[in-house]
Design a protein around this nucleic acid. Structure first.
Lengths: 216, 216
DNA sequence: CGTTAGTTTGAGGCAGATCAACTTTGGTGG
DNA sequence: CCACCAAAGTTGATCTGCCTCAAACTAACG
C-alpha cells in the first residue's frame, strides 16, 4: 500500500458572514451516524474535532472502512460533486464536532471562487489514487504486508486517533483476529510496541521496508 | 459490485483551431504501453477507437486492472489534476487510436471554460465511487459474485471489447483459472453462453440478481 | 469495582490459489 | 484456402493463508 499525507482545506474561511450564519454546528457521539448510504446529499461537512469513518455495510453486517476524515478535513464532497446518492455511510469513530455547509452555500462559494473547485477536484484525484492502491494491495498483497502499511499510514496521517484492531482490519481487508495475531508477531520482531490497547510505532520507515520484504 | 454507465465527454470540441493544430495523433498496437507508472504527466489523452487499460504491476509481475477507457473517454486526467506522477500504467488492450492534448492547452481550455473542470471533477467522483465499490466487493464478496457482476458491467459498458479471462480476473481480483471455472458453471446454469472465446450474456439483470443470492 | 467493549489465542475448515498437463481457438503466411 | 502455431482457455489435483468459531482474558471507564 502506498500512502501519503492528504489535503486539509479551510473551507470555512471562504464563507461570507451571511453564509456563516447559516452554518449548522453538529456534535456527535461515538457510534453516531451522520448520513446513510443511499441518502441524497444536501451539503458538505467540515470536521472540527474527532474522526469520522466512511464505511459500507453489506446486508449480512460486514463492514468495510473506505476513508477516514480528521480535523480540518471535509466529507460528503464526492456525492455532492457527482450529484449521486451517498454510496457509503459516515460514522463517528469518537465524539466529534463538525459544521454543515448547505449545498446552496457551497455552490455559491464555488461559483465565486473557482479555485475551490480545483481544490476539491485535487482531493478527489488523490482519494481515487489511494482507493485504487488499496484495491491493488487487497488483490495482490498478503495480510501481514497490508496491516503493516496501514499501521505506518495511520501513524503518520491520524496520529491522534486510537485505532482499534477492528478498524485497522476493516480498513485494509482483514479480520480483527488476524490483526491481533499480526500485531503480536510485529511486537516480537520489535517493529511496534503495545501499551494497553494503543500501538506505538517507533519507525514508519522500518514498517514500510519490512512490509515490502514480506510482500509476495 | 455496483456499476453503472459512465461519462464520455467530447473534450476535442472545446479546442480552438490553434489548439487543434497542436494535437498529437497516436496509434498503438495491442500490448503497447502509453505511459508508465511513475512517469510525470504531460497532458491528457482522448480515446478515438479501441480500449485502453489502466493497470498496476507488482515487482513479481502480478497485474491488477483498475479502469478501462473506450472510445470518447479520456484518461491521464487524475494525475494531471492532482499534479502527481502516474500511479499506474496504461496499456493498449487492442489496437487503438487516440489524441494527446498537451497540459498547457488543457489548462487553457479549463481556464476559458470552467464547466470542463466541473465535468472532470464529476468523472473523478464517479471513478472514486466505482473504485471504492470494487474495494468493498473484493473485501466482502466471493469470487463467483464478483465475476458475475463484472460480466454484467462490461457487457453494458464495453459491449464492443472482447474481454479475455485474464482481463476479467485482473479487473475483479481473480485468477484466470478461477474465471474459467466460474464461466463454466454459469453456462451450465444458463446465465451465459460461450461462443468460441467470446461470452454471450442474454440478461445482465439475471446476472446481477443471481450474484446477490450467491453473495455471502 | 463491576461491567462492557475490546483483545488474544487455539483448533479446524475451506475458498480460491497454485501447479501442471492438456485442448481449443483464431489469426497468419505459404 | 488450409495448415500451422502461438495465444488463450480448460480441467484436475493439491495446497495453504486466512477466516471461522469458540472461549478466555484484560483494559478502560463510569
Amino acid at each position: 500500500m502506498s500512502f501519503e499525507f492528504s489535503e486539509k482545506y479551510d473551507l470555512l474561511s471562504q464563507l461570507t458572514e451571511a453564509q456563516k450564519s447559516r452554518l449548522v454546528h453538529i456534535k456527535t457521539s461515538k457510534g453516531d451516524i451522520i448520513y446513510h448510504q443511499g441518502d441524497a446529499p444536501t451539503g458538505i461537512y467540515h470536521v472540527k474535532s474527532g474522526h469520522i469513518g466512511l464505511i459500507t455495510i453489506t446486508p449480512n453486517g460486514n463492514e468495510s472502512l473506505l476513508r477516514v476524515f480528521g480535523p480540518n478535513y471535509f466529507f460528503g464532497h464526492r456525492s455532492l460533486i457527482s450529484n449521486e446518492d451517498y454510496h457509503a455511510t459516515t460514522l463517528s469513530l469518537v465524539d466529534c464536532e463538525m459544521v454543515f455547509i448547505p449545498k446552496d452555500d457551497f455552490d455559491e462559494i464555488v461559483h465565486e471562487n473557482p479555485n475551490i473547485l480545483m481544490h476539491v477536484a485535487q482531493v478527489l484525484a488523490k482519494e481515487l489514487r489511494r482507493a485504487e492502491n488499496k484495491f491493488r494491495d487487497l488483490a495482490l498483497s498478503n495480510v501481514t504486508s497490508r496491516i503493516m502499511q496501514t499501521l505506518a499510514f495511520i501513524k503518520s496521517r491520524y496520529p491522534d486517533h486510537k485505532w482499534t484492531r477492528k478498524e485497522i482490519g476493516e480498513y485494509c481487508g482483514a479480520k480483527t483476529e488476524t490483526v491481533s495475531r499480526v500485531l503480536g508477531r510485529l511486537e516480537k520482531e520489535g517493529l511496534i510496541q503495545k501499551k494497553g490497547r494503543s500501538i506505538i510505532i517507533p519507525s514508519t520507515e522500518d514498517l514500510y521496508s519490512r512490509a515490502e520484504e514480506i510482500d509476495d
